[in-house]
Design a protein around this nucleic acid. Sequence first.
RNA 1: GGCGGCUUAGCCAAGUGGUAAGGCAGAGGUCUGCAAAACCUCUAUUCUCCGGUUCGAAUCCGGAAGCCGCCUCCA
Length: 466
Amino acid sequence: MALKFFNTLTRQNEEFKPIKDGEVGMYTCGPTVYAQAHIGNFRAYMFEDLLRRYLKYKGNKVTQVMNLTDIDDKTIRDSNARGIPLDEHTKQFKEMFFRDLDLLNIERAEHYPEATTHIPEMVDMVKILLEKGHGYKSGDSVYFKIASFPEYGKLSHMKLDELKTGARIDSDEYEKDTASDFALWKGWTPEDGQVYWETELGKGRPGWHIECSAMSMKYLGESFDIHTGGIDNMFPHHENEIAQAEGATGKKFVNYWLHCAHLIVEGQKMSKSLGNTYTIQDLQEKGLNLSAVRYLLLATHYRMQLNFTFEAAKAATNAITRLRDFKDSLANTEGDGSNPDIAAAINKAKEKFESSLDDDLNISPAFAAVFDFVKDVNVAREKQQLSKVDAEAVETTLKGFDSVLGIIYVDEGGSLDSEIEELIEKRIQARKDKDFAEADRIRDQLDSMGIILEDGPSGTRWKRKL
RNA sequence: GGCGGCUUAGCCAAGUGGUAAGGCAGAGGUCUGCAAAACCUCUAUUCUCCGGUUCGAAUCCGGAAGCCGCCUCCA
């Protein structure tokens, strides 16, 4: 079955065909580094992580570019308020962003271009747009003339004359021909303080939209395969990106546009007044396991609104525990031969896992395939001991699934310290001596330290609580 | 006002014409010193509501209600 994506451009499921066979270029709108990213932001980055991981699973070489917007009204405002340079102000948020990506086991993109280090590319592009009649100067700024790009609106299916623009015209400080025209270059104003670039376009700073057009094309070429972002970015941001890029090159900018729906918390949209714009640190402090958070962010189809609840987080923790227990159970197997049911289970699971994700990253049946797989292997194991060969085949399959999911083979533990090891040894001895009161006491003590013991036929296993 | 989305069990969530996946939670059982884990069995006559089309609809059409997003550099 072929990989298909729902393309916002056509509003249809389309078979995915990269420009160059086996290689995929994708641009993903990244964070504005004016604050610590919240769980809603990470929903989008998680979707993009799933996308890139599955493309790789299918054998593609992926080049992902994610921008870091380190200049905009808010970053300028806040850095001026703190009285420190812009780059110093944004540095800490960039660091937090990458730390959170690691905590959520989100793979790194190939490039993270920063807006402030790509000013020349943006200036060049604005110059081309001016030459081609898509831009015009007004005061110290440069604007994109939407009327010069008849296809404007093809992504969002919005018609300009239908937009509510009234309130905006009055409040706008700049001079524009048409209210919906947007800034390519913003002339310096006193509020910008020390933040400006002296360029051929004058003293000022780039508009937001030109950033993504210029940087995506620098790293991925004038036409590339996939562009993603949150649904809120569809209009006007992505619409503007198309107008700029296609206005400048005359070529199709992006073949597949994928948009991710938003996340709500406990049935309510995130807002400062509700205090539910959680960061990753907030969730950690509330005691949530971050693999469970990853599972939750992953487990709802990306085009559906995701309801993040703490009850679901608890459920996710238990689900992950089950998968990891299964993984651990594969370690101690012996014996020769092979169980034919195992090969059948592997084929069935792979087929369902892949056909589901092929269908516009339909994650739910893919997870169902993994859980069915666990069950099938366990049933087969009840009938006949798992041989070494079987266990290895199961493990290889599970690792393949987890290369996409990233929740099973995650090292969160660290090794046991000697105190815990000693307690486990003591308890084993107590059980041998039939001193069950003492054994139970030690088990409770370890439990309070976050260590769970499981006594099986082959001895006692331990694991950490999630 | 324009454009778009959603409504499936206690919770999360698949399913887009053939008779309700999966996870969590819950109940009973096997196993175990007791637990835990694992395994087995059970848990939506029903898919927001009302009409219609069809041999057959959660799925298609019409209508209603509720919730939500974009149209303001908010993923």
